[in-house]
Simulated scan of single mutants.
Amino acid sequence: MIRRVWPLVAAAVSLGIDAYVLAGVLPQIADSMTTTTAMIGFGVTAFTAAYAVAGPLLSGRLARGGTARALLVALGLFNLGNLVTTLAPGVEVFLASRVVAGVGAGVLTAVATATAAAMVADHERGRAMSLVTFGLSTGTVAGVPVGMLIGQSAGWRWTMALVVLIGVVSMVALALRAKALPRLDAGSGGSAFAVLRSGRTGVGVVAAFLLGVASLGLYTYLLPMAEDRGLGGLGFALVWAWGIGGVTGSALIGRPLDRFGPRPLLVALPALLALSFAVAWLTSSPAAWLVAAAVWGAAGWASVPTLQQALTADRPAQAMPVIAFQMAAMYLGSAVGAALGGALLTAGIRAADLAAWALVPAVLALALTGWIATRAAVRRAPDPAQAEACSVV
């Protein structure tokens, strides 16, 4: 399967890196443009806002012209935005370039995930979508350390040049395979918001937002939380435990998702996420924190394809707009979670207690995904002949 979808996975890696790479080099960018770190930080906000708006509104419209065209246009915008970021002479151009990159990223995520699912048999959809999430999580995990490493040795512009390079390689690979890409059902031209009329989809989008607030939002404060617990020396190991957990979870969730369906995982994964927060809140044990960080990363990232499968398995024709709203909600949740964490710290809340506050959206998400589990399509075992004919390459 990986041979069929690897260009989509590579594109997701570049997107994942881009979403977080600036976090490690914000001070360098601010110094080079003679502005404040806070002003450069608005670039992250601009990217996230453009991502959230563009995915639901533009993915279907672009896909009506063909899957390859939609992917190449999205990657083209993404690469163009990052190239302009690399060369930006001042903060105004920098911020505008982040909007362009965010538009491309929002469309790319929705179309790439729906395309991966459409390229395989029904009993392989979970693995196909989880591979795209694997690319996103790998890029996210690598983004900050890679950005800092290259930024410190060669400058932040070379950090962004790496993102452009990966994006261009993905674009060339997709162009070469354009004829093999399936045509997606892009609807008849109605409003992209029509999919939200389904109660299950609406609840799923809210759940994705809450999971983004809890998992990705809290990750912003992992190091301050550890330091407040007297575990500052463990910070590097905790970041990698979270990252390795996320990559492993997204890589391995596909097979159980295809075999058992999303129902049990919709309950188990948010529950594990909440449990990891409880451990971080209630203990200062280094071993417990390392395990909790790994479980946190694994459960948070594995929940992404699980929710996608639950919302689209019985209606693949609506996969693209549903995934667009889900991913937009997740990244918005990440931004809101980071902002709420900062507000709580400003209000005098201890960093160590942020895990307790994150339990609130995590438990709410668990309640919603549990409700979705009662309404998700029942997993049916594939026909043996079909499974043999469509076996993984």
Rank of each mutant, 00 (worst) to 15 (best):
L149H: 11
V132R: 04
G126V: 08
L282Q: 14
W301C: 08
A324K: 01
W6L: 12
S170Q: 06
A96I: 10
M160S: 03
D314Y: 09
V295H: 04
L87P: 04
A88G: 10
V107R: 04
G297D: 09
T37W: 04
W6V: 01
V84L: 14
T113V: 12
P270S: 11
A68Q: 07
A118K: 00
P316W: 08
I17L: 15
W242S: 00
Q309W: 01
G43R: 07
M39Q: 15
A11Y: 07
A351P: 02
V163G: 11
L282A: 15
D185C: 00
W242R: 02
I323T: 13
A287P: 01
L8I: 09
M330I: 11
I150G: 03
G300P: 00
L354A: 08
P361H: 07
R61C: 02
Y219L: 15
V84H: 02
D353Y: 06
A317S: 14
G66D: 05
C390I: 00
A268S: 10
L359C: 13
Y51M: 11
L345I: 07
L71G: 09
A274P: 06
A50S: 13
G261K: 01
R350D: 15
L83N: 07
L131P: 01
L184Q: 04
I166L: 15
N79A: 15
V267C: 05
L238V: 05
G189V: 02
G76A: 09
R255S: 14
I166A: 14
V132M: 07
V100E: 03
G254Q: 00
D122K: 11
P305Y: 03
V107H: 04
H123I: 00
A241T: 09
S334F: 03
A343I: 13
S137D: 06
A117L: 07
S276G: 14
T283H: 02
P224S: 13
F134D: 06
P321G: 04
Q309F: 06
S285Y: 12
A54E: 08
A175E: 05
V295S: 06
P256F: 11
V13H: 02
V5A: 14
V120D: 00
F209M: 08
R255M: 12
L218A: 15
T220L: 09
S198M: 01
G24I: 04
S284W: 11
V239I: 15
